[in-house]
Design a protein around this nucleic acid. Structure first.
Lengths: 200, 200
DNA sequence: GTCTATATTGCGATAGAC
DNA sequence: GTCTATCGCAATATAGAC
């Protein structure tokens, strides 16, 4: 069964927009990659910007369920950090382009930045930040830890890995799945680094 | 004394190209911001791409001196990591746009990616990576540390902070200089996290 | 070195036939 | 729902006057 044109457009647009950015791709290029007439972009999405939004919705909306799971989670702060790391890993596994869109919006913001930050990213951020606040209060983490700074550095550890491929591919051997190994090591370093020193 | 047009173009182009990316700015916009005729972009740089390269050279070439200093440095691995963090901080202080260009190239690569990775970024990466390798060998760091993974996560901690402004500005109080505080805390967490546990 | 004027190409969007 | 054709405009680059 042939996919409908709307779907074909979204699917073809994902890698193109992720790699070149919104301003870097033309509607003709997008249509061609989808094997679809370029006028259909206006028909289905009202224009190029609309297709971009459609792509972002497609990629980010599944993350919503995951944040909701976060918010219900009853677990200790270190466990919540572990859980966050696992979720980032699974998001990336399911869609390797999401992180690229996020970083693209952070470094070269478009009209869509406000939307995805408010709708998705902030919630993740609040979740980690809360985990650090609680963790300090409950004595898991070092008491001079700043929860905001800690959240940024944890997010940095997790996100940068998936972005830095152009640098790291030279240093990482092929035919090995590094993603999971990386995340495990990084989160271990991190939890070890923030934990309260025990003077018993 | 009036600056020459070449200089005016470079200076005006830095923030514009950093924020919108190469594909997101037109030569008209660049010329207007510099108060200069748009034909001068071709005259001085051979075109828009040339101006972009000129901007990158302007921003990245000072980093060269700093890496050379790295390579001569006689210091223990943890000290070298500390030193790296300080250098990143001073680079960002001197030029707040450099990190944005780097990330822009990583997420939405242009023709210039290969150049700046090979010429600048790789050298930084090798320096940290070597520090971790030595640190494991000399017993400073945990023996199951993977130097490549460790380098990525350290770079992530340092870089992401400077990129994540659109998310974090909402959470960080104004009128405080967070940069230095952040870097100090992050590197402390990190060094604490990687250090060898002492069973004496 | 700097300007105007223009050549040329490609862009995004839409009207209207099918 | 999909196509062709085309409009209007913005893009980069350059020729040539000053």
């Amino acid at each position: 069964m042939e996919k409908d044109s709307r779907t074909k457009l979204i699917e073809a647009a994902i890698p193109l927009l992720a790699e070149k950015g919104l301003a870097g791709v033309s509607i003709r290029e997008l249509a061609e990659a989808a094997n679809v007439n370029s006028a259909l972009i206006s028909y289905y999405f009202g224009g190029k910007d609309g297709l971009y939004l459609g792509v972002l919705e497609e990629l980010f909306s599944p993350a919503d369920t995951l944040v909701e799971a976060f918010e219900k989670l009853e677990a200790s702060p270190p466990e919540r950090i572990q859980y966050y790391a696992k979720v980032i890993l699974s998001i990336h596994k399911k869609n390797p382009y999401l992180m690229q869109f996020m970083h693209s919006e952070l470094t070269n913001p478009t009209f869509a930045l406000k939307i995805i930050v408010e709708k998705y990213i902030s919630r993740f951020f609040k979740f980690i930040s809360q985990a650090f606040t609680d963790g300090v209060k409950e004595g898991y983490f070092n008491s001079d830890l700043d929860p905001t700074y800690a959240s940024i550095s944890l997010a940095g550890i997790m996100n940068f890995y998936f972005i830095a491929r152009p640098i790291t591919k030279e240093f990482l051997v092929d035919n090995v799945d590094h993603d999971e190994k990386y995340v495990i090591q990084a989160v271990n370093i991190y939890l070890n680094g923030v934990r309260r020193i025990n003077y018993e």
